[in-house]
């Protein structure tokens, strides 16, 4: 029954499963097409359970309330900012993790089909991220487009969308790292708690402990290491309330006020979306299902 195998057999005889004459571009297009197909079913599943619709309605209601109560000035945008910084990441992180665990059957079904793990994870991400971003753009975007169609409103939307995607990425990472649902959700919540609450406290302690030293630059670096802080600063600089932030605020204004600094900040937020997702993909590819 046994035959001899050379270790190079696999390398010299690549099984492509593709008919001859398939171009490189076509090969790349096919996983994307498959990904979108699967994402369609993920999206369909999400729309069925209505949580995302409720989230969109909640955002819409609060945005309308703030604009009606406080007018269309910086004040209402500040209030909205707090919603964007706390609620959007929290809902994104919890919803994505729970959805991932609930999709286990779906994922199991797909891994026995001729699609790659990368395609499956990408489709899940596109479906979940797409739904949450759409909810955000409807709930916050629509009122902002009506009441504050200016650079401030636009910044709020961009920051909110990026922050949503960051926390979907972190949620996926937490979900592929742990097999147990409760632990996965716990880990995801812990990440949210760290970035939204704990981190600021730690930074304050640091600032206090080393208050004898010039801390502007370390603070700047620390801010870049937390997507929530980064988003907050980007928005505050638009609202011209950075004067309230004292000397450190001046440094922020100087650095992040320049086009270079702003580009760097958005680039950093984009990295916060990509890096956890790349890590998650690596774990998922090797995972036993």
């Amino acid at each position: 029954m046994m035959t001899k195998y050379s270790s190079t057999a696999a390398a010299t005889l690549p099984f492509t499963g593709e008919p001859d004459g398939v171009t490189c571009a076509e090969k790349k297009a096919r996983p994307v097409a498959a990904m979108l197909k699967i994402a369609k079913y993920v999206l369909y599943d999400i729309l069925r359970n209505r949580i995302v619709l409720g989230y969109a309605a909640f955002l819409f209601a609060s945005a309308l309330t703030f604009f009606n109560l406080e007018g269309d000035g910086s004040k209402s945008l500040m209030s909205l900012l707090n919603i964007v910084l706390i609620v959007a990441p929290l809902v994104s992180v919890i919803f994505s993790t729970i959805h991932f665990y609930n999709s286990y059957e779906f994922i199991e079904l797909l891994v026995a089909q001729p699609v790659s793990r990368r395609t499956i994870l990408g489709a899940e991400y596109a479906g979940v991220g797409g739904a949450l971003v759409a909810a955000f753009l409807f709930g916050i975007g629509l009122p902002v487009a009506v009441f504050a169609p200016d650079p401030r409103g636009f910044t709020l939307l961009v920051v909110g969308v990026l922050l949503t995607l960051v926390f979907v990425s972190l949620a996926f990472l937490a979900a592929v790292l742990t097999r147990d649902k409760a632990r996965g959700i716990g880990l995801a919540l812990l990440l949210w708690f760290c970035f939204s609450i704990l981190y600021d406290g730690l930074v304050l302690v640091l600032l206090f402990a080393f208050s004898d030293y010039p801390l502007e630059k370390p603070t700047l670096v620390l801010t870049f290491l937390n997507p929530v802080d980064l988003s907050r600063i980007l928005m505050l600089l638009q609202l011209d309330v950075s004067a309230l932030m004292g000397y450190t605020g001046a440094v922020f204004n100087e650095f992040l006020g320049s086009p270079m600094g702003v580009a760097l900040a958005y680039g950093c937020l984009a990295l916060w979306v990509l890096l956890p997702m790349i890590w998650a993909e690596r774990v998922f590819r090797k995972k036993d299902l």
Partner: peptide, 14 residues
């Protein structure tokens, strides 16, 4: 191996 090719590196064979 599936038909001579390492199947841990491919998805199309499925």
């Amino acid at each position: 191996q599936f038909e001579g090719a390492d199947l841990t590196r491919s998805d199309a064979y499925r």
